[in-house]
Every structure is written in C-alpha cells, then in structure tokens.
Amino acid sequence: MISPIVSVSREGRAPGVASLVEALEGGAVLMFPGLDFPFSPFEERFVERPFADGKAKNVNIRGGAAELRGASGSAEEQEALRQLLIRYRRFAEGLIDRYLPAYTGKVALAGTSYRPFDVDRRKLSWRRDDTRLHVDAFPSNPIGEKRILRVFRNINPKGEPRRWRVGEDFGSMAEKFLPRLPGYSPLSARLLAALRVTKARRSEYDHLMLHLHDALKRDMEYQAKAPQADVHFAPGQTWVTFSDLVMHGAMGGQYMLEQTAYLPVAAQVHPEKSPQRILAAKLGRPLQ
C-alpha cells in the first residue's frame, strides 16, 4: 500500500478518517490546505531570492536561543528571518496542539528551517540525494526510542508546487531490505560515541535505519520500480508526516519552511505502529 495523502479541513475534518492521529501513525501524510501563515511586506523578500550562504542545504534555528545559522543578508534581514522561523515554530506547535492533541506536551521541538533552494539544483552524492525514496535517519544524532515528526509548508510566491513522491508502507519495504543489512555491533556503537562521531550511542534501531536509508537510495531498480505515487503540495499548503515511517523523495520546488519534532515511541497512541516496533516484529525479537 502506498502512503495515503489525507486532506484535512481547517476544522480538523478529513473524509473517511476517524482520527488524524491514527492516520498519521498508520503512515499517512496529513495535508492542510487552508491554514494561514501570512508574511509581512518586509518578509516577502525571503521568497524573492534565497537568503542563504549556500554552505548548507538550508537555513535554520535551533535551541532556546534560536540562533540563526546559514543565512545571508544584512543584520536587519537576518534578524527578520530569525523571527520568521520563530513564528513558524510557534505555528507548527499550534498545529500539533490543535489537530493532534494526543501529542500535546509530549513532543520536543528540534530544528526549524528555511529551505530556499530548488531541490533539483542541489543534488549531491547519492547518499545526500533526497529526490530518491528514503526514510529519515540521522548519522550523527541517534534518536533511539523517538519518532521524527515533521511539519512542512510551501511558501513559493509564483505558484510552483513542492513536488514529492511517496512510496510503499514501511513494513513491506523492510521485508525486502532487512536481509541485506549488516549486523549491529554494540562495541562499534560505543566507540563512535566515545570518539564523538555520534552525539549519543547508536541503538540497533538507529543502525538499521541508517542502513535502510542508504540501501534504499543505492538501489536504483527499487527506486524505479517500487510502488510509488507523485504528490504536489501547492503554495500555502502545510503537510505533516512521520518522516521515519513514510518513504518519500523531494522531487522539486523552491521555498519551503520545515519544523522537526521528536515524539517518544511510548507517547504514541499505537506504539506498535512505530518503525522501532515494526522492525522488531520483522526480526522476531526486541531490538538492542
């Protein structure tokens, strides 16, 4: 089954869906076409040209101080961009509180990013080519028993959609790729943490997800022939998904905002639908 796109009204209604949380945990992408996030006249310059230094894939803020990284422009412009990202962080948090109240007080907000570059013009190595179907995993930042929840918004001023493709359900993909993956070494995980290659010790889950990410992107036959569907998100649309569960590829589109949040597996309505528990079930044992 290909991950469904569920359109949600401003009132929180979605035809045929009893619970937005259950749809999300089941592998859906929630799309909100009618949420307001206006720009001030000064802020409109941020979609007229990229205010980025070009050294990284995006501009972002992190932590309580919301320090801006990767931006270009005058001091006034950079502060306005920082405030825009702080406002988007509040917007994303408010969306979660209103439409996913089961997660209120349980999510931890991470980075907030401004992504001004066209996807098609920033392809790097195969591992960093996000046009290829993949699930998200962080090489230096193990997440263990947490989920990656992301809130995206297309802010393109010229009517250009953000073009994605989504793939088959996580369990079906895992059955194909798990037999190919190398075994987990707790000793290697401890060594990487001791050397500060990783910010914490990689769990077996982190190990498997990193290798799934790479195996998916490396397998061009799977990329071409696997079940998948194209999805276009119009300017002004906001979409939310667990990017560690939903296979996706970003195929094109310029100017987007994104908020990453972490949710403990134990805080899910259905923890058994997490990739952590799906992988354990496929292997027939708890993960290390």
Rank of each mutant, 00 (worst) to 15 (best):
R62D: 12
L81P: 11
R87W: 03
Y99C: 05
L68R: 12
G94Q: 09
E48I: 07
A110Q: 13
A28Y: 02
R82F: 03
D120I: 14
P50W: 07
E44M: 13
G105T: 05
A56T: 14
Y88K: 00
E25I: 07
K123A: 11
A14Y: 06
L81T: 03
R87E: 03
N60M: 14
F117V: 11
V59L: 05
S74A: 08
T131H: 12
L30I: 09
A52P: 01
N58R: 15
M31C: 15
R89C: 01
P41I: 08
L35R: 06
V59M: 02
E77I: 02
H134C: 08
E76I: 06
F51N: 07
V107K: 00
P38E: 07
E79G: 02
R98C: 04
H134G: 09
A92P: 00
D97W: 01
K123G: 04
A108W: 05
Y88A: 00
Y114M: 08
T131Q: 15
S72G: 14
E44P: 05
E25A: 06
R90K: 14
L35C: 04
L30A: 05
E67S: 12
K123N: 10
D120C: 13
L35K: 05
R128A: 15
D118G: 04
D130K: 13
R127F: 12
E44N: 12
A92L: 02
T104W: 01
Y88G: 01
P101A: 05
R122S: 13
V29E: 04
G111I: 04
V135F: 10
A102M: 06
F42M: 13
V59A: 05
S19Y: 06
P139V: 04
F42R: 13
R90N: 13
F39M: 14
P41F: 06
L84D: 00
Y103H: 12
Y99S: 08
L68A: 07
H134S: 10
P41D: 15
V135H: 08
R122E: 14
R115N: 12
S113P: 02
E67Y: 05
E93Y: 09
V59C: 02
P41C: 08
G111E: 12
G26D: 07
L84K: 01
M31T: 11
M31K: 15
I61T: 00
Y88N: 00
V59S: 04
T131E: 12
A80G: 12
L35I: 05
Q78N: 12
G111K: 07
V59E: 01
V29H: 03
A66Y: 10
E79I: 02
P101W: 03
A137L: 06
R49Q: 12
R45V: 13
P41L: 08
L84R: 00
K57G: 12
K57N: 14
F32C: 01
V107T: 10
S72H: 10
I61F: 00
L84C: 00
D129F: 02
Y99Q: 09
E22Y: 04
I86P: 01
S74W: 00
P101F: 04
K55N: 13
S113F: 10
P15G: 09
R49A: 09
G73H: 04
P116I: 04
G26W: 03
L35M: 04
V29I: 14
G70M: 05
D136W: 00
G34L: 07
L30E: 08
G27I: 08
G73P: 10
N60K: 15
V135A: 11
A28H: 02
A75T: 13
A108E: 14
